[in-house]
Simulated assay, not measured.
Amino acid sequence: MENSENYIIRIDIPEVDEYLALRKICGLSERGKEASKIGLSNSIYSVVIRKSTNQELVGMGRLIGDGGTAYQIVDIAVHPAEQGKGLAKNIMQLLMTHIDNEIDPQAYVNLIADCPADALYKQFGFVETAPESLGMYLKR
């Protein structure tokens, strides 16, 4: 990570308002405030990166799931002004360390990758499921 003294990395859950603000500025889909409060509190493992000067949330990533057989990496986001400094890679390294050390190796771990972020996830062993299967979501 570039200039690591400029950032504080913690295993922690972001506050709802800052979570929603970072999602928005990073171009991620909108989430409801109450639903986000519930979802964040049910995280299995969550990483945040803050600026050391003002504690502003500039990066995050979470692991969610059933706690036994199925998990999903979600909310990987780095503020556009902080991208290209290795922060997303640091988030993924911490998530993967937790997965490697705490989760049954037969559990299913997935994510939905926006391009070109798929290149980051491939560095950690993630592969595309197609053509054997396709990632899908309920569009409402």
Rank of each mutant, 00 (worst) to 15 (best):
Y7W: 12
Y7S: 10
Y7T: 09
I8Y: 05
I9W: 06
I9F: 13
R10T: 11
I11G: 07
D12T: 10
I13K: 14
I13E: 10
P14D: 10
P14F: 12
P14Q: 11
E15F: 06
E15N: 10
E18F: 02
Y19F: 15
L20E: 08
L22E: 01
L22T: 05
L22K: 01
R23I: 11
R23W: 08
R23Y: 09
K24I: 06
C26E: 04
C26K: 06
G27H: 06
G27L: 02
L28D: 04
S29D: 14
R31Y: 08
G32C: 07
K33Q: 14
K33F: 07
E34L: 14
E34P: 03
A35R: 04
A35H: 06
I38V: 14
L40C: 02
L40T: 06
S43I: 04
S43H: 07
S43F: 06
Y45W: 04
Y45K: 03
Y45S: 03
S46G: 05
V48M: 04
V48E: 01
K51Y: 02
S52R: 11
S52D: 07
N54D: 15
V58K: 00
R62N: 02
R62T: 01
L63G: 04
G65K: 02
G68R: 11
Y71R: 05
Y71M: 08
Q72N: 12
I73K: 03
D75C: 09
D75P: 04
I76T: 06
A77G: 06
A81E: 15
E82H: 15
Q83T: 12
L87F: 05
A88L: 00
K89W: 01
N90R: 04
M92N: 01
L94S: 07
L95K: 02
L95S: 01
M96L: 08
M96D: 00
T97G: 01
T97P: 02
H98T: 02
I99L: 04
I99H: 02
I99S: 01
D100F: 04
D104E: 10
P105I: 03
Y108R: 06
N110Y: 07
I112G: 06
D114R: 11
C115I: 11
A117T: 09
D118K: 09
D118G: 08
A119M: 05
Y121V: 01
K122G: 13
Q123G: 05
F124I: 07
F126H: 07
V127W: 00
V127H: 12
V127A: 13
E128L: 11
T129E: 14
P131Q: 13
E132I: 10
L134G: 10
G135S: 14
M136I: 13
Y137C: 12
K139E: 15
R140L: 15
R140S: 12
R140I: 13
R140N: 13
